[in-house]
Design a binder for these strands. Structure first.
Lengths: 219, 219, 219, 219
DNA sequence: AATGAATGAGGTTTCATTCAT
DNA sequence: TATGAATGAAACCTCATTCAT
């Protein structure tokens, strides 16, 4: 029982707590998965005790929902705004969109959220549906518009745009998943900058290639 | 084999059990994730009782390890053999390899395993390392060899082969993850055959494109 | 780790368990109240571990419900049958009914249940309603019928039968509550047999008294 | 008392608080039982915050003790004084005492306290002993004196006075318990005034009945 | 070989109590 | 004097694992 009042046992930080807790929760959920994540670890990383979590969220599931709902939609809206303001070729716009998503999501801690949703979609169908409709399909719709405009103008090849979108961004998504799974085990971790540059180049090449490249027999 | 045995309490032969249990475990682990999967559900799907699982595996984790270790390596070996026997262009070989993997893994129940490993890599580093080295990197090595040969022969563009491999197969991997996460929630589920055809075509186009397709400014 | 197999760690008693658990739960709930009762103590008194409770009941509340629903209704039905078979004066029937209830409920461990319901009615309205309708009011209805018949025949005074029933059995109910609250603290605990004899005599006297006994001014 | 004080953060005088808190505590404890009562609800009903409770009481248990110790003894003393001043028949005195208790306790919020003590006697033996000795037995002693005097003078029948007291007031106690348990669930709640009138009349009849009313066989 | 009743460690959640403001 | 954010012990409940049958 120290006589000097050097360090109080805790501080009141009502305003910062939710953000701190969500950040901690993101890290733990992504590392361990929702079920294996222990609330105590979330609390510890946020610098509070177990009970404090319940002052701000009704429980573990609510924490997950708040995390997913709050995190990515704003970034997506930024990108949508950016697309609306664009004045130039569809090709440049596509690059702009993908680069913005890459910077804002793939290269930030937010990259954990797609990994998390992928893992937990089966256990939280309602949340997964929200993510599907409000994030994934909204993102696809944006890109699809751009692609179809580019196809109409002749900038891109004529391809089924619904599939082309998924295929186009697949390499970027894979990087996001890789980052939160096997990358920590790689001897020489992947260089994200180079990866992005090559991926974008190849995806664009696939989208724009002049000569038809026959696939041969299907499986 | 007594034929006057009226109704035996147990039916199946012991040597079918492990396979049945692994199949059931795969389904449940993929749907729920390892931590949230209940062993009782695995047992039920395999048509046995909870206790029986422990006659064949030492526990839940052992079940996961057996699952991962046993499932994909044989398929990969098939593909390696197929590659060794190939006689033709590198392009055709690449198509042959990817198509074989698609059929054997992506379109089979085995597709759950990559999803599972992605989700659980953080909790089972040892198992993840096994999967990284014995499956992922081995698969990459095979494809990389083919790609580099194709680049040397002029069939493919000169690209950093380590990255090109990852990017090339990303659309196929994405389909696998999609299948086990959001696809059940889609109104009109993705058509895998069309997806594969377009993905392969675009990936090949990206790999073979004659004209350099400048990327513009990097992010 | 004893080599000899003298005493196994536990026994399978699937059939007896529910009854044992309900008996233990009754004792603990009555002593402590529902909220303060710890499931672990219930389990210990039943000679099992905490987890075993959940093999037979879905939780603490289910245990309470099963307890209340299963315990008293059968006894009440016995008494109803006994009343139907009666052939004699209403006075004798009344005595018979009250004596039977006294023996079957007030003097058995079941006496804890009215005390428990009284305490917990506020927290479990649904259960309380069940008890009110299926036990209390049913019991009252039986007694009321007898009383009204006795009033019609002149055996009893004319009184408001709905109130007279409550008043008539109040002394018996009080004994039940006393038993599970202050009696353990009394230096010389109440003698239930004498109490019942005197109570029945006084209640009957109040019901049958020939001379009107004016009450004087109301408060 | 500065009159330029624009808007104080706290309003009430400290010496009103304990009473307000005890009133709130009584209501919550009676509704929920001690264990299930949340101190935050007590605070809210008293119009203060959780922390404030601890400025006046050392904790939840202290609140209960203060509640029980402070509430009923004064009322009992009133009744004792009233008995001392009485000049008239024992019958009238008995009616006076019971009516006074009915008005002061049964028909006031204080009626919650007997219900509370009944429910919590098992968890707070010390407090229960206090209540037993300082309230219950003191009240009984008073009534017993009156009854024995009445028996001596021939106003009442000769009965074991210790039991007769308990039996005599049982209907009044039952009303108190009923009020705080099942009455809120009754379709047409009991009419307390009529109940008291009939109960008093019947109890007096039982006490005064001229003709011995044979009970028949005991159980 | 198979069962499923029983166990108990481990996690979530609640809430009386403390204490910085 | 009053607040309410923060704490942490305690209780419920789950389920991997064990073991009597």
């Amino acid at each position: 029982m120290p006589d000097n009042e050097s360090s109080p046992r805790w501080h009141r930080r009502a305003d910062e707590r939710p953000r701190e807790l969500l950040d901690a929760a993101l890290a733990v959920f992504v590392e361990r998965g929702f079920a294996a994540a222990r609330l105590e670890e979330v609390a510890k990383r946020a610098g509070v005790s177990k009970g404090t979590v319940y002052l701000y969220f009704t429980g573990k599931e609510d924490l997950l929902k708040a995390l997913v709902r709050s995190a990515i939609v704003p970034e997506l809206e930024n990108v949508e705004a950016l697309a609306k303001d664009h004045d130039g070729s569809r090709r440049e716009l596509l690059i702009k969109i993908v680069s913005a998503m890459w910077r804002a999501i793939a290269m930030s801690p937010l990259s954990g959220i797609p990994k998390l949703m992928l893992s937990e979609a089966g256990n939280f169908p309602e949340l997964a549906r929200f993510f599907l409709e409000e994030v994934i399909q909204r993102h696809w719709a944006l890109m699809r518009r751009v692609m179809e405009e580019g196809m109409a103008s002749g900038e891109f090849r004529r391809l089924p745009s619904d599939l082309a979108v998924r295929i186009f961004i697949a390499p970027m998504m894979m990087a996001v998943f890789w980052k939160h799974s096997f990358m920590p085990l790689e001897e020489t971790p992947m260089d994200f900058d180079r990866y992005f540059a090559v991926a974008l180049e190849m995806s664009l090449a696939g989208l724009c290639a002049k000569t038809e490249t026959p696939t041969g027999k299907q499986p």
